[in-house]
Design a binder for these strands. Structure first.
Length: 271
DNA sequence: AACGCGCCCTGTCCGC
DNA sequence: TGCGGACAGGGCGCGT
C-alpha cells in the first residue's frame, strides 16, 4: 500500500499530532504484527516513554523514544491513526498505544503484512545503514543512479522497487516515474544511458514530490493519520489506467505483469 | 551474488 | 444469486 509519499504524509501528520506525547499503556491485539520479541516485551518497551519525534526512513515510520526507536512498517494495508478512545476498537485493530492525554495511536491492518518493532537506537542505526538511497536526498545524484543501475540486468521498473538500492518507490510510483521519464519499464536497468538515468532520476523526484504535495495516493486502503484520503489518485498518469489514453500522446495505456506485479505504461512514448 | 518465485493475509471484484 | 479465482500499494526467505 503505502510508498514514500504516503509514509511521509503520515510522518508529518504524526509529528504535528503526537510529538511530545507520553505513552501510557500498550495493548497488542494481533500478536503476529510484533517483530523482534514477545508482545509483552514490546509493550514494556513503550510504556512510560515520551515521543521525542517522528521521522521516515524508506517506507518505515520511526518514533524517537530517546534511547529506543519504535519502527512501524505498514505493509500493504497498515494504517496509523490518532483517534479518541471511543473510536479505538474497529475491526482489524492491531495495536492500541494509549497516550497519557487520553488519545489512542491505533495501528490498524486488514491483511497484517505490516510490522511493529522496538529496537535500540544503535540497532536501528545499523539497519538504517543497510537500506538504499533516499530518492529525495542529496546523496542520490543522477550519476550515482546510473552507476547503480549499470550493475543490474533486472527490468528497470522492478529494479527501482528494490529497497536495497533506492528506497521508497513501490508499484505505483515505479510505473509513474518510468512514464514521466519516457522509459520502457521492461528495459534492463543496465541498458540506461547516463542521459536516461538522469531523466529517470528527475522523474522519480518530481513524481514523489508532487505525490507528497497531494498527500499520497488512495486507491482503496491508504489513509493519513487522521483517517483522511490522499488526493494523488486523480493525478496518476498511467497506474490503474489500462485502456485509457496516454496523457502525453493519446495512445492506449497497457497493463503487463513484471515479477508478479502489475505495470502500466504507454508503448508509444516510453522507449 | 543476483535474481525470480512463493508466501504471508483478508477483502473485493469479476466472470461464469 | 452464488461461487471460485484473480488480484491488491510490501517485504522476506528460499532455491537456483
Amino acid at each position: 500500500m503505502p510508498e514514500l509519499p504516503e509514509v511521509e504524509t503520515i510522518v508529518r501528520d504524526l509529528g504535528r499530532l503526537v510529538r511530545g506525547a507520553t505513552i501510557s499503556r500498550v495493548e497488542v491485539l494481533k500478536p503476529d504484527l510484533i517483530e523482534g520479541g514477545s508482545p509483552a516485551k514490546f509493550a514494556r518497551g513503550l510504556e512510560g516513554k515520551r515521543i521525542a519525534g517522528v521521522s521516515r526512513r524508506a517506507k518505515n515510520i520511526v518514533f524517537d523514544l530517546g534511547a529506543d526507536r519504535l519502527i512501524v512498517n505498514l505493509g500493504m494495508t497498515g494504517r496509523l491513526l490518532v483517534v479518541p478512545a471511543v473510536d479505538a476498537d474497529p475491526p482489524h485493530a492491531g495495536v492500541r498505544i494509549a497516550l497519557s492525554d487520553g488519545r489512542i495511536l491505533l495501528y490498524h491492518d486488514v491483511r497484517r503484512f505490516g510490522r511493529l518493532e522496538v529496537s535500540s537506537a544503535e540497532e536501528w542505526a545499523r539497519r538504517d545503514e543497510a537500506l538504499g538511497y533516499e530518492p529525495l536526498g542529496d546523496d542520490l545524484t543522477a550519476e550515482t543512479l546510473h552507476e547503480l543501475a549499470g550493475r543490474s540486468r533486472v527490468a528497470v521498473k522492478t529494479w527501482m522497487m528494490d529497497q536495497k538500492r533506492i528506497v521508497g518507490i513501490g508499484n505505483i510510483y515505479a510505473s509513474e516515474a518510468c512514464h514521466r521519464a519516457e522509459i520502457d519499464p521492461r528495459r534492463p536497468a543496465s541498458s540506461l544511458t547516463l542521459d536516461e538515468a538522469a531523466s529517470l532520476h528527475a522523474a522519480i523526484r518530481a513524481t514523489l514530490t508532487e505525490a507528497i504535495e497531494f498527500r499520497g495516493t488512495t486507491l482503496l486502503d491508504y489513509r493519513d493519520a487522521s483517517g483522511g484520503e490522499g488526493g494523488f489518485a486523480a493525478r496518476l498518469r498511467v497506474y490503474d489506467r489500462e485502456g485509457e489514453p496516454c496523457p502525453r500522446c493519446g495512445s492506449t495505456i497497457e497493463r503487463i505483469v513484471q515479477g508478479g506485479r502489475a505495470t502500466f505504461f504507454c508503448q508509444q512514448c516510453q522507449e
